[in-house]
Design a protein around this nucleic acid. Structure first.
Length: 272
DNA sequence: CTAAGGACCTGTCGGC
DNA sequence: TGCCGACAGGTCCTTA
C-alpha cells in the first residue's frame, strides 16, 4: 500500500498526536507478522517512555524514545489508526499502543507483510542500515544516483524500486516519475546519461512533493491516522490506466510486467 | 557481486 | 449466487 508519500502523510498526522506523550502500555494480539515482534525489547525499552519525535527513513516510521525507536513498516496493507480505546479491535489488529486515556494507536495489517520492530540507538537495525539514498534529501543528487547505478544492466524501473539503492519509491511512483521524465522503464539503469538522471530525480521529487501535499495516494485502503484518504490518485498519469489515453499524447497507456510487477507507461512519450 | 523469481499473506474483483 | 484465478501500494531470501 504505502510508499514514501503515504508514510510521510501518516508521520505528519501522528506527530502532533503523540509527540511528548508517554507510551502507557503496548498490547500484542499476534506476532507472526513479517517478522516476529520483539515484545520483550518493546516492553523493556519503549513502554513507559515518552515519544520524543517521529521520523521516517524510506518507508519506515520511527517512533523515537530515549534508547531507540519503535520501527513500523506498513508492508502492502498496513495502517495505523487512532481510536479512543483498545476496544473495537479489528480482525487484523496486531498491536495497540496506549498513549493517553483516549488515544490508542492500532497497528492493523491484513496481509501481515508489515513489521513492528525495535531499533536500538546502540546497535541500530540491519533493515535500516542497508537502505539507500533518500529521494527528498538535499544531499541526494543525480550524480550519486548515477554512481549507485554504476554499470547495472537491470531496468531503471527496478532500480527505482530497489531500496538498497533508493528508498521510498514503490510501483506507483516509479511508473509516474518515469512517465514525467519521459524515460522508457525498460532501459538499463547503467545506461542513463547524467541529463537523464537529472530529469528523473527532478520528476520524482516533484511527484513525491505533490503527493505529500495531497495526502498521498488512496487506491483502496490507505488512510492516515485520522482516517483521511489521500487525493493524489486523481493526478496519476499512467499507473493503473492501461488502455486509457496518455494525458500527454492521447495514445493508449501500455502495461508490461517487470520483475513480477506491473509497469504502466506510454510507448510514444517515454522514448528516452 | 548481480538479477530474476519465489515466497510470504488476505481481500477483492472480474469472468464464467 | 458461487467458485476460481488473477492481482494488489513490499521486500527478503533463494537460486542461477
Amino acid at each position: 500500500m504505502p510508499e514514501l508519500p503515504e508514510v510521510e502523510t501518516l508521520r505528519r498526522a501522528l506527530l502532533p498526536l503523540v509527540k511528548g506523550q508517554t507510551l502507557q502500555s503496548i498490547k500484542f494480539f499476534r506476532d507472526d507478522i513479517r517478522f516476529p515482534i520483539p515484545k520483550k525489547n518493546l516492553r523493556q525499552f519503549a513502554q513507559g517512555q515518552s515519544i520524543r519525535n517521529i521520523s521516517r527513513r524510506g518507508k519506515y516510521l520511527l517512533l523515537e524514545v530515549t534508547d531507540g525507536a519503535i520501527l513500523l513498516h506498513l508492508g502492502m496493507s498496513g495502517r495505523v489508526a487512532q481510536f479512543p480505546s483498545a476496544r473495537r479491535v479489528e480482525k487484523h489488529t496486531h498491536v495497540i499502543f496506549h498513549l493517553t486515556p483516549d488515544l490508542f494507536l492500532h497497528f492493523i495489517d491484513p496481509r501481515r507483510f508489515g513489521a513492528v520492530l525495535w531499533f536500538s540507538n546502540e546497535t541500530g537495525h540491519p533493515l535500516i542500515d542497508s537502505l539507500g539514498l533518500e529521494p527528498l534529501a538535499p544531499t541526494t543528487t543525480a550524480d550519486k544516483l548515477k554512481q549507485a547505478a554504476g554499470k547495472s544492466t537491470a531496468s531503471i524501473k527496478s532500480f527505482l524500486m530497489n531500496a538498497k539503492k533508493l528508498v521510498g519509491v514503490g510501483n506507483i511512483y516509479a511508473c509516474e516519475s518515469l512517465f514525467k521524465a519521459k524515460i522508457n522503464p525498460k532501459r538499463p539503469a547503467g545506461k542513463l546519461s547524467m541529463k537523464d538522471w537529472e530529469r528523473l530525480l527532478a520528476a520524482l521529487r516533484k511527484i513525491l512533493d505533490q503527493s505529500i501535499a495531497s495526502g498521498g495516494t488512496t487506491l483502496r485502503d490507505f488512510f492516515d491516522a485520522d482516517g483521511r484518504p489521500g487525493y493524489y490518485a486523481l493526478n496519476l498519469c499512467v499507473y493503473g490506466r492501461e488502455g486509457k489515453p496518455c494525458p500527454s499524447c492521447g495514445s493508449p497507456v501500455s502495461k508490461i510486467v517487470q520483475t513480477g510487477r506491473s509497469t504502466f507507461f506510454c510507448k510514444v512519450c517515454q522514448n528516452r
